[in-house]
Nucleic acid binder design. Sequence first.
DNA 1: AAAATCAGGTGACAATTGTCATATTTTTAT
DNA 2: ATAAAAATATGACAATTGTCACCTGATTTT
Lengths: 200, 200
Amino acid sequence: MIRLFIAEDQRMLLGALGSLLDMEPDMKVIGQAMNGEEALREIHRLQPDVCLMDIEMPVLSGLEVAEELARSASPAKVIILTTFARPGYFERAVKSGVHGYLLKDGDIAELADTIRQVITGKRVFSPELTFHAIREENPLTPKEQEILRLAALGKTTKQITSELYLSSGTIRNYISEILQKLGANNRTEAAKIAAEKGWL
Amino acid sequence: MIRLFIAEDQRMLLGALGSLLDMEPDMKVIGQAMNGEEALREIHRLQPDVCLMDIEMPVLSGLEVAEELARSASPAKVIILTTFARPGYFERAVKSGVHGYLLKDGDIAELADTIRQVITGKRVFSPELTFHAIREENPLTPKEQEILRLAALGKTTKQITSELYLSSGTIRNYISEILQKLGANNRTEAAKIAAEKGWL
DNA sequence: AAAATCAGGTGACAATTGTCATATTTTTAT
DNA sequence: ATAAAAATATGACAATTGTCACCTGATTTT
């Protein structure tokens, strides 16, 4: 019997997945969570065989949870289940050693199938992701990401200055660099591009 | 037997909802669609009793479909099912006369219950939405929305100019007005605020 | 018909933003 | 220990952005 844990912040999908997977004869859903922190705690406690994990969740993202599980050498296998084909997400997920990465665009049978494959030690990645230019690496350094994250919220150079304790010239230099890297004309466009790619 | 139609662009949720609602003894899912255009066509053809409709779908949004159904005096009752508590969405939905508005944050039982209520002619709205400040009306005029939509993509004043055939001064006047209405400090922040509220 | 409203525009100004070349300082590598 | 690299800072400049007061011509309202 495969013991499953599901972390997903959209209650309706969480409930639906839970019900349907529980109907599979060889699976049992032993726990659920609606945010990353709770998920991490419960996974440590319950020691499931496989965790299905959404990425965009409150408190801790699914990627952060996966990274933390890897750090603590948890035996639980992680399958990321997300709406978004953002390259940055995929890159981070693979780096943290997850066993699967699926889009919420397949059907439940496919998901159940993936779970069974993962249990045997295989890794399963959505073909949409392994192909084409989705392999783009995030060109931004951590500091650049941090600055763009703030700029994307509409903060001015001055506001960023006082959050990061850097001079306003430095901030503008960083932004200038970011714009070149992303081929954007201004902060707003840069923010849009980075958000689409999952780089922020 | 209640005849249901489901329009939802996330295949996994679509499939899951379909399976689970079909198990209800008094319901039958007679059709599904993954975009608004297909949904509209199929609803006209199949004449379901109730349509569950996501808002954010390709081609036509769920709101546009609901508005079109209202215009054509379709007897199908519409229940909007969305992740987002954006006030602008709710306002538009109510104006187009939908019979229900639920967040994807309840469980399936609640959804089934809502469907049964709607069938009897009742209207059901998620309590999260009918209360508090979520009643905020969109303060932006259509032209302002159009301009902000472009600005939110990172377009410069000059680019907006050439798309809308307005002078650059006029664009800047509009943006200035938008910033005041939204209490934002710059375009980026304005875009963020409007997007959150569902006003763009 | 006069008055008000509206969509669009001008011009002037200050502040912010983006670019670039060039320091200075701190870290890292050899 | 020294050289190379990175991170941070400056200053100068042009372009863009945001603010404001005011103008013009239609269209509505009264």
